[in-house]
Structures are given as C-alpha cells and as structure tokens.
C-alpha cells in the first residue's frame, strides 16, 4: 500500500459518500445517470467475485463490501425509492450501455491474463470501469445547471483513478517486475475520458461560476 493508492481509495470512497449524501439527504438524484450507477454496480460485482475466496487484507475486504453495498444501494434508491425515482431524469439518461458492455465483454475474452471465468470477469470489470462514466458525462452535457454535489461526485470519481495512475508509477519504480498492462491502459483511458470535464470543472471553480459543459 502506498500514499497514492490510499488517497485513491479514499477519494473513490468519498465520491460514493457524496453521491449517497445527495440522494439520502435531499432525496434527489437530479443530474445523476442511473445507467452509470448500474454499470458501476456491475463493475464491482464482476471485480469482486473473489471476495470470499481470495483474502488480501481486512482493509481490502471491508472496502469491497462498502463499494458493493453503496453502489447497489444507490441503484436501489434510484429505481425503487419513490421520491428519488421521481427526480430521476429518464428522458435525458438515454445512453444505450449495451454499446459499451458487449465490446468490453468481447475484449475481455480476447485480451486477458488467463481464460478462466473469474479472470475474464475481472478483466471485463476493468474495461467496463474505464467507460462506465460515459452515460454520466453525456447526461451532464444535457443538464443545464449541474448542482455542486453532482459536480463534486464526478470530479472525485475521476480524481481517484488519476491517483491510481500515480500509484502504478510508484509501484513500477519500487517493486521490481511490477507490470500490469491491462490495468494501466484501462486506467489511463478512464482518466483521459474525464479530461474535458476536469478542464471545465477547474475553470468553473477558478472563475467561481456555475459548472457548464458545452453540448
């Protein structure tokens, strides 16, 4: 464990807590894409299939439970909770995510470390996580006034993977033989997808104006 990875995990955790805070306190998910939340739940389910048969540490185990539990409860809130569901903008959240799920699955079948069910699912979760934010970014472009919590949520979500990139650089130079091409490339693509959001987010923060993504 290194400071970049710990900061990355804490940033990831705080992004989820910001979202849960928004949904739970103001009972609204305006501006949040249910598609992205469902994709993230799928990412965690396929990534943590080994949660009970591969024990790394208490920290690892607890964080997996938190990520699984929070992502599933967010999907539940947005689907089942009356008030929250009413604030969900179904007509704007139209990204057809079969266009990303299927290619990720095919790619995982072709490029992986080992052709076993769990390994392919784990690889699939990496590819899927890289593009899972797309429905949310599309929705943000369509949402006129993005509220602060939604902006913070997306920013933290992007920042966590950027911190993981630093973690991989650190581990590459400190752990001989540490090479993870699949993870590195997926993580790089994921972070690059946030590039223009980061640009407009930091601009709006510097000029102290409302966050607005050009359509």
């Amino acid at each position: 464990m290194n400071v970049f990875r710990l900061a990355g995990d804490m940033t990831h955790l705080s992004s989820i807590l910001v979202l849960l805070l928004k949904i739970h306190t103001i009972k609204s998910c305006a501006g949040i894409s249910l598609k992205t939340q469902e994709l993230y739940a799928l990412v965690f389910i396929t990534r943590y299939l080994d949660i009970f048969d591969r024990f790394t540490s208490i920290y690892n185990f607890l964080m997996k439970l938190i990520f699984l539990g929070s992502s599933l409860s967010i999907v539940w809130y947005m689907r089942r909770h009356k008030a929250v569901h009413r604030s969900y903008d179904k007509d704007q959240d139209t990204f057809r995510y079969q266009f990303i799920v299927l290619p990720c699955l095919l790619l995982a079948l072709v490029i992986n470390h080992k052709l076993t069910f769990k390994e392919v699912m784990w690889t699939f979760s990496l590819y899927l996580e890289a593009v899972a934010i797309l429905p949310q970014l599309v929705l943000l472009q369509r949402t006129r006034n993005i509220d602060n919590l939604t902006g913070q949520y997306v920013f933290l979500l992007g920042a966590y993977r950027a911190l993981y990139l630093l973690n991989w650089v650190y581990r590459y130079f400190t752990e001989p033989g540490f090479v993870r091409w699949i993870t590195w490339i997926a993580g790089l693509v994921q972070t690059l997808l946030y590039a223009d959001f980061f640009y407009y987010y930091i601009l709006s923060w510097k000029n102290n104006v409302k966050l607005e993504l050009p359509a």
Binding site: R47, T56, N60, F67, H113, F178, R180, T183
Partner: peptide, 10 residues
C-alpha cells in the same frame, strides 16, 4: 508473479 498478486488492488 502469481495470479493472487495481480488482484491485490481494489
């Protein structure tokens, strides 16, 4: 590096 190491991150 055996499979276990590959999955040590979240």
């Amino acid at each position: 590096e055996d499979e276990d190491d590959k999955h040590d991150e979240l």
